[in-house]
Structure formats: structure tokens, C-alpha cells
Design a protein around this nucleic acid. Structure first.
Lengths: 257, 257
DNA sequence: CGCCGCATTGACGTTCGTCAAGTCTAGTGG
DNA sequence: CCACTAGACTTGACGAACGTCAATGCGGCG
């Protein structure tokens, strides 16, 4: 499969997780996620100081929470391996998945404003994160301009991402939502060296539905429809995109609302 | 009306806009929006430096854009007077209102990540904003720790706000959405010294609908339903909330979806 | 006065949620 | 090795919520 040519080698989501014990020092400076996670163009001495920000790393087993709504906010987390969902809950028990995060992405920004997290972060597979104490980040970004800018961009990117989700939730039909979701996932996976056409969903239909503002049955039906139309192959959580242009067409179809 | 007791005096949204010419120097240090907009507890000398960040002010007439999707990003804007909406547009022409902003709120955070704005900001009434060049903000927040923290909080607050909108769009029914919208508006207006029970909508039914993921007819019908139930009085854009607890009950009703 | 944009209301249709039955798969234990 | 189970997924029938289309009302402004 030529399009699984890895730009970044060896981003294993699972296999080697249990080998890398916490004692092995993995610095940002030699992390293969560096270009996703950290600013480029740091000098060696700056990079050394950034290494020190990553105080510890932490493993999160599948199903466990990295943090919960109400937890004290201390640190941002950079995902090294694994896959997360974030979700918020209303008082009445309803909840809404607000995002799915994968290796190289930063999680925990919601906690800054009130010093407490306002959502839950749940590992959808065994995961490992770098713990980056936020006061250290602030300290260092006062000294390293490019780090400061980088932190601002990460937060702005999240705002823009959520804008896109609002568009999806506010004005797209079920097919468009699912098509946009698949294209987004596969694009982010591709940036991490995975295939452009094949992916394994780490979340259930219900979690997809929660994210997309749909019921799980609707998600399932919509998958089936895509299969009938020959746009994708679906076997449980394994998805192969046969006709990416077909998906893109669906996203921009504007059949109605 | 006792609950229109002004905490901040004279936040006029319209009347005096044309009087305050740009030549009058209005510094943050004596701005009555300070506590909404700027960090508290700055020393006098720090406050002086913050004053210098606000390079210029800019008037935006009703219907005009403060910035557009694609515009180069240079500055954040603090709203002094007036009322804005932000919206994003898909290629196919669909658009989605992503927020309504009022005096004391910061607008333009979307532009940081890519150096270009990704949404439009439109004045819904004649408005005036403080232009805060972003590189000046970054410069100063490297020196004034509390300003740095404040900037981070503003961005985090926007992320959390959007999380809430995602919950609304993803899992609430029309009545719940409109009730939540009204409560949110009136709460923010109250923080600015206005009534807890009365408000004037600055946007059309269509704009409300776009924000809430509903069609304008649905918004109108839902208003009518609230009126029938004696929860609000509605006369065009004038809304009086007769039974705020009724609204809160609706938000948490979870009838279905 | 008449126009125009905005808002309301009604009749009808579509989409998606609800409820229920049934299937598939992985994991467990005999 | 196979039966059993639990959880995830699929599919169908039906209904509710909301969108669509169209007619009408209302208020502000030239």
C-alpha cells in the first residue's frame, strides 16, 4: 500500500506501549511527534529547556480517565500514544463528545480558564501522555518567543476546530456529518504516517453519534448507505475508503438541512 | 425597575456612539469595561503599559465587517460598544453563526493559528472596538505575568464556551436551545449592568436560528410557544422574561433526543 | 402612502429519533 | 473445540420534531 509510506516512522499505537517503561527518558528533542507537538526551529539550548517542561509521563489504560470534570487543572497533556475522547455532561445526565484526540495532540486546554477541568478525557485505547505543568509552560513561554507563539496557536487551532464542529452540528445532514468525520479522521491519521484510505475506528457508533449529534442507529444506517453506494467498505470498526471524492462530494452537497 | 441597577454606569450601546470621536483618548485604565476585559490587580505602571497596547480604536457601522474570512490577522479586538456576530461559511454557501459578542468581549482569536481570520465578524449595530496588535500583546505578556495568564484564560474561556454550544447543538431540542440562548444573553447583559428580565435582541430570527441550528420559522414558533405558556413576553425584538425558572426548567428538561 | 424587510402562522413533507428484534464478534469457561 | 454470553452493531417499522413552502401581518422609512 503505497500511501502508507510513513513520514514519521514507528508511531505505534499499541504494540510497544508496554515496553517503554517510565524509566526510559524520552525527551521532546528526540520524540518523533516533535513536529506535530512542539514548535519548529528551536535552538539546541532552547530545546533542552523545553525537554524539562515534560516533567513526567503517564499511562492511561483503556477506559480510564486522564482527567474528569471538576478536577484541578495543573497541566496540559501531549498524547504520545493512544486515542482519547473528551466529553462534557449536562446536569441532567446528557453528554456530548466534544472531540477525539490522537498522538501529537494537546489535551486539557479547557481547564485554564477556571483552574478546573470542565470536561472528561477518556482513553479509548491504552495510552501514554506527556504531562506538561502549565505554570512551567507559561514560565518558559515568557522566555522563548516561538514557544509562546506556539502555545497561542494551539489554543487558536482548537477554537477554529470547534467552529468547524459547530458548522457541522448546526447545518449538516447525517450523511454530510459522517462523511466530514471520516475525511477529518483519515486526514489526521495520514499526517501521522498512516494510510489515506484505511482506518480503524477507536470509538463505538454511539460515541461517533454523540460527537456528530446523531443517534447510534443513524450512524449505523448512514455507514450502510455509504457501503451500498460503494463509497466505503465497513467491517465493524475497520473502514476502507474506496471513493474519497465521493465523500467530499457528500460533504458539499447541501441537499438541505 | 430595580434589577436594572447599573453595576457599571453608562454602557450605552447606541445613543452616544456618535459623540465619542476617535480623538478622545480612552485608556484601559479608566475604561468602565476594564473588569470585564483586562486582568485585575495590575500595578499603576503595568496598567500604563497596557494602555499603550490599545494602539487605536475603530468604529464599525451596523452591517459592516470588522474582519472577514481570509483577512490577514494582526490584532485582537476588544468591543467597547455595540454588538457583533461571528460566522463561518462553507464553500457551498451555507453559513453558521458561531457567536454573538457584546461590550467587553474579545474577538478575533480565530486568526492566530494561521495568521489569517477564518470567520467573518459583522457589527449588528454601530460599534466601536479597541484594536490590540497581537505582537504587542505577546510582547507585553512576556513581561507581565498576570496579563499572560489573562490572555490564556480568554482563549480557554472561548474553548469552553464552544464546548457548551456543541452540547446545545448536538443534544438539545428547539425549546431547550432557545431557552438556553435567552438565559445566556440575559446573564451576560446583567453582568454589564442591564436588566435580568428584559432584553432587546440585536439579531434577526434567522441569525438566532443559524446560531442554534434551527430555521427561522422554528425560532419564531418556539418564541410563540413560550409566550402562550406565559414564560416570556415578546414584541418583535423586545423580550421580557416573566418566568426565568420556567426557562431554566426547559433547559434541563431532557424531553428527548 | 406604499414599499420592504422581518416576523408569524399554517399545511405538509423529510429526516432522524424511538423502540424492538435480531446478528455478529470477541472473550470466557466448560 | 465448542457452547455461551455480553457488548456492539444492524435493520425495520413507526412517529415526532423540525424543515419547507406559502400566505399573511406588521412596523419603519423614504
Amino acid at each position: 500500500m503505497s500511501d502508507s509510506s510513513k513520514k514519521l516512522t514507528c508511531i505505534n499505537t499499541n504494540v510497544f506501549t508496554h515496553m517503554s517503561s517510565t524509566s526510559i527518558k524520552v525527551a521532546c528533542s528526540n520524540c518523533n511527534l516533535r513536529e506535530l507537538c512542539m514548535p519548529l526551529g528551536l535552538s539546541d539550548s532552547e530545546m533542552e529547556r523545553v525537554d524539562e517542561v515534560v516533567a513526567t509521563r503517564r499511562k492511561v489504560a483503556r477506559g480510564d480517565n486522564l482527567f474528569r470534570n471538576g478536577d484541578k487543572f495543573n497541566a496540559l497533556f501531549a498524547i504520545r500514544t493512544g486515542f482519547f475522547k473528551t466529553r462534557i455532561s449536562a446536569e441532567d445526565g446528557r453528554d456530548q463528545v466534544t472531540g477525539f484526540q490522537m498522538a501529537g495532540e494537546i489535551i486539557g486546554l479547557d481547564g485554564i480558564v477556571s483552574d478546573h477541568h470542565t470536561c472528561d478525557a477518556v482513553a479509548l485505547e491504552d495510552a501514554e501522555v506527556c504531562v506538561m505543568p502549565f505554570d512551567r509552560i507559561e514560565e518558559l513561554s515568557r522566555e522563548i518567543t516561538s514557544l509562546q507563539r506556539h502555545v497561542h496557536k494551539i489554543m487558536s487551532r482548537e477554537i477554529v476546530r470547534e467552529n468547524g464542529v459547530m458548522l457541522l452540528l448546526g447545518s449538516m445532514r447525517a450523511e454530510e456529518r459522517l462523511a466530514a468525520f471520516l475525511l477529518n479522521l483519515v486526514q489526521r491519521l495520514h499526517a501521522r504516517g498512516f494510510s489515506q484510505s484505511e482506518l480503524v475506528l477507536r470509538m463505538t457508533r454511539e460515541e461517533i453519534g454523540s460527537y456528530l449529534g446523531l443517534k447510534l442507529e443513524t450512524v449505523s444506517r448512514t455507514f450502510s448507505k455509504f457501503v451500498e453506494e460503494g463509497i466505503v467498505e465497513v467491517k465493524q470498526r475497520h473502514v476502507r475508503i474506496l471513493n474519497p471524492d465521493g465523500l467530499k462530494l457528500i460533504v458539499n452537497s447541501q441537499t438541505c438541512q
